[in-house]
Amino acid sequence: MKILVIEDDETASAYLKKALTESGHVVDDVADGLQGLNRAMGEPYDALIVDRMLPSLDGLSVIETLRKAGREMPVLIVSALGEVDERVRGLRSGGDDYLVKPYAFAELLARLELLVQRRGRAGAPAETRLQVADLEMDLLTRSVKRADKPIELKTREFQLLEFLMRNAGRVVTRTMILESVWDYHFDPQTNVIDVHISRLRQKIDKGFDEALIKTVRGAGYSIRSGA
C-alpha cells in the first residue's frame, strides 16, 4: 500500500514511517497541513494518516478539502492524548477512523488495513458467505458450520465471529472488537473481550485439529488458517 503520513511530530512520524515500511508499505511523510493537502491531491495514495493538529492547515480542514475535491481514499485521524475527544467531529469532517495517541502500532496498522479493505470492498456485491479453512458462515441464514458440522452461536458470538472472519488473516484489536460488536468507543476494561473470545474458541476450535482463532501477543486476535 502507498500511504501518506501527515504528522508534524518528527519522532512519531519517523517511527510510523519505519514501522509501516517494515510491514511492507510505501510511506511518504510531510510535516505540514498545506503540503500534505497538495501531496494527497497530486498523487494516488491508498490511505492517509493525518494528525489533528498541524502547522499551516489543521488535519480536519485537510480532510474536508480532500473530500470536497472528490478524493475518497481512507483517512485515519490521530489525535494527541489530552485533547478534547472530538471523535464525532473528526468523523464528520470525512475521516474514516479516529485514534488517540499514544496508540500501539499494532492497533494503528490493524485499523488502517481494515479501512483500506473496507474501501476496496465498497460497491462490490455484499458477501453472503464467509469462509476460513473449513469454517463457514452463511450470512443469510445466519448459520455457522465447521467441517460441515453445524455450530450454535448466540447473537453476540455470531457478530464477533463475523467481524473476525470479515477480517480473516488480519489482526483485530480488543478496542476494534468492542467498537464494532458492541459499539462502545473506549478501551475495554480488564479482560472482558478475552473471555468472549475464549467462549467462541470453545465452540469453534474445541475438538478440531487446528485452532483458527489466534492470539496476537500485544495486539489482539486474528482468525486464519496456518501460522
Binding site: R156, Y184, V192, H196
Partner: peptide
C-alpha cells in the same frame, strides 16, 4: 442489556 451481555461470560467465569 448490552452491559450485562458484555460482562456475562466474565461473571460466569
Amino acid at each position: 442489556e448490552d452491559a450485562v451481555d458484555l460482562y456475562q461470560p466474565l461473571a460466569e467465569e
